[in-house]
């Protein structure tokens, strides 16, 4: 049986802005999972990505802030130059500790702490990028039986990042950019249905 997923964690690097726009603008208005995103950015970039994606998405897109409670119908982006961590009480923490895979925020750090907080009830999504970041996180997700999805490297703006994950772990799904949002919507609707049945 499919585990009761509770959260979507997303990693993106080079080319991620376009990919995120494509996905977030096609998620259902009542998308049932919170979406937490690490997009690699220049450390001193003003976080206008949040504004940009918020315009295109019917979900509320925000910069994640420390101690904030993680809620459905929301998309949270890691602030530039901070690692984004998920606490076991389902709130965010930020740190400025060393870069991981030359990155801060690091996708691995988000995925690693997401696994500690949500165990197997995670959907992990790794998108386009020229980095190795996220591969270990996907490996950890896979080992704890979370759902692992990568953007098909043949379809990615930069294939290095999804490729690195595929080399490390047999991912559950390889999807083109166009397939990702409809697939996530299917999972979201399944969850909404299950919740209604329980009631």
């Amino acid at each position: 049986m499919m585990p009761d997923y509770e959260i979507v964690v997303v990693g993106a690097s080079a080319g991620g802005m376009h990919a995120l726009k494509e996905i977030l603008s096609n998620l259902d208005r009542d998308f049932a999972f919170p979406v937490v995103v690490v997009q690699h950015l220049a450390p001193d970039s003003e976080n206008y990505l949040v504004q940009y994606l918020d315009e295109y998405s019917s979900l509320s897109v925000k910069e994640a802030s420390e101690k904030q409670r993680i809620l459905p119908y929301h998309v949270y982006l890691a602030p530039p130059n901070y690692h984004l961590l998920i606490e076991e009480d389902k709130t965010f923490s930020l740190t400025v500790s060393e870069k991981v895979n030359f990155s801060r925020p690091s996708i691995d750090v988000l995925f690693e702490t997401a696994v500690l907080a949500y165990q197997n009830r995670i959907i992990g999504l790794l998108l386009t990028g020229a980095s190795q970041d996220g591969a270990k996180g996907m490996q950890m997700l896979h080992a704890t039986k979370g759902l692992t999805i990568v953007q098909d490297p043949d379809n990615a703006f930069v294939p290095v990042m999804p490729k690195a994950a595929i080399e490390l772990v047999p991912v559950d799904y390889k999807l083109t950019l166009e397939e990702i949002a409809p697939f996530l919507n299917t999972l979201s609707r399944a969850r909404t249905r299950r919740k209604k049945q329980k009631r």
């Binding site: 420390e66 961590l85 998920i86 606490e87 076991e88 923490s93 740190t95 500790s97 750090v109 690693e112 702490t113 500690l116 907080a117």
Partner: peptide, 8 residues
Amino acid sequence: YSPAHLKR
């Protein structure tokens, strides 16, 4: 301290 950082 916030636990996630320490645990890592």
